[in-house]
Write a protein that binds this DNA or RNA. Structure first.
Lengths: 136, 136
DNA sequence: GTCCATGCAAACTGTTTGCACGCGC
DNA sequence: GCGCGTGCAAACAGTTTGCATGGAC
């Protein structure tokens, strides 16, 4: 048993399913989607369990929660590469972009003020390429 | 009557109160706080009316809504100077910081990908100066 | 066998909506 | 006085929680 497994509490069938879904998916699923996907593998898994698993993984730093401007949260596996989310205000698609420069500049901006930075989220909205074409 | 006024709908007592509160307050009040402050000036004003006024003002571009990581929204008057929000993960206080550099760098990052940027939000969390002292 | 994790349903928070009345223009 | 705006309460979405049962170790 490795450290990861130990720290994550009991590795139940349900938690394994939720983690697998997050690992296989590319990004930013919401709790309902995860629940729907989980049900395909286990009829009986409840939404509450999904939320509890997500809360646990988040606390352990295994996943991250994003608020993409909407009322509900999105979850994705913690990644080494910092990346940002662009939400199309027209079609709702979310585009991820990698970058270090902005992150570092922003971090410096805050640490210069004596603030200890833990997380940085950059949320951008606008129109994606396709929606610009379709309207032009 | 100018276009702005017409587009903003009827200027009722309730809407005037909500707008006054937003103008007088420094920043980022949530709907409940606005409602509480509004009640001090009008006993009968309802939370629904506050939400409707906020939705209207937001649509008109008079105010902006921020999601500061929590489940509920915060509202503040639209400002010319771009600024960012730092939320202390310990005491919950929100600190605003002005900046152009990060904004422009970020904007370029996205427009270079053919994305049309409408809004940019930078959300940072960490520990504020006071909380660092109190724990050190 | 001991606890932690689960399922279910009910509670809860933040926000929106249907409807009849009220008021700005 | 017409029609939008309001208050109230009920509906709603997303998330959390209490409790009895079930399963990991």
């Amino acid at each position: 048993m490795n450290v990861e497994t130990k720290r994550a509490g009991r590795m139940t069938r349900q938690r394994r399913i939720v983690m697998q879904i997050l690992e296989e998916s590319q990004a930013h699923l919401d709790a309902d989607s995860i629940h729907a996907l989980a049900r395909a593998r286990d009829e009986k898994i409840s939404l509450a369990t999904v939320y509890r698993a997500l809360a646990l993984f988040k606390q352990r730093g295994l996943i991250e929660e994003q608020r993409l401007g909407e009322g509900h949260g999105h979850f994705e596996k913690a990644q080494d590469t910092p990346h940002y989310h662009f939400t199309c205000s027209q079609c709702g698609r979310v585009i991820e972009l990698e970058d270090h420069q902005v992150l570092e500049l922003a971090r410096r901006l805050f640490t210069d003020q004596g603030l200890q930075v833990e997380t940085i989220q950059l949320l951008v909205s606008g129109r994606c390429g396709e929606c610009q074409e379709n309207q032009a």
